[in-house]
Simulated assay, not measured.
Amino acid sequence: MFKLSRLQVISLFYAAALLLFTVYWSQYYDTYATKKGEELFIALEVLLFVSFFYFVVLQISIAKTNWVLTLMLPIINGIISFLFTIVVLWLGSLDGNPEEDILIFGTVYTSLSGVEGLVLWNKTE
Rank of each mutant, 00 (worst) to 15 (best):
M1H: 08
L91M: 06
L91A: 07
V88R: 11
T124F: 11
L120M: 04
M1P: 13
L18S: 02
Y28P: 13
F53L: 15
L103A: 11
L18C: 09
G106R: 00
Y109M: 01
K3L: 15
F52S: 00
L69Y: 15
F53N: 04
F55L: 07
I10A: 00
K123M: 03
S11C: 01
G96V: 07
G106T: 08
Y54H: 04
Y32T: 12
Y29P: 03
M1K: 10
L58F: 01
T31D: 15
G37D: 10
S11T: 03
F84I: 13
V119Q: 07
M72F: 13
G37L: 06
W67E: 08
L47R: 01
M72E: 09
N66F: 14
F53T: 13
E45K: 14
F53V: 14
A16T: 12
E45D: 14
V46H: 03
L94N: 11
L58S: 02
A43H: 04
L112D: 03
S11I: 00
S113G: 08
I10M: 02
F49H: 12
F55M: 05
A63R: 15
V23A: 12
N77I: 01
Y54F: 12
L7S: 02
A43T: 08
S5Y: 04
Y28V: 09
F21L: 05
E125S: 06
L73Q: 02
A16K: 06
F55K: 00
T22A: 10
T31H: 13
L40H: 05
L89N: 09
G114F: 05
T110D: 01
F49W: 13
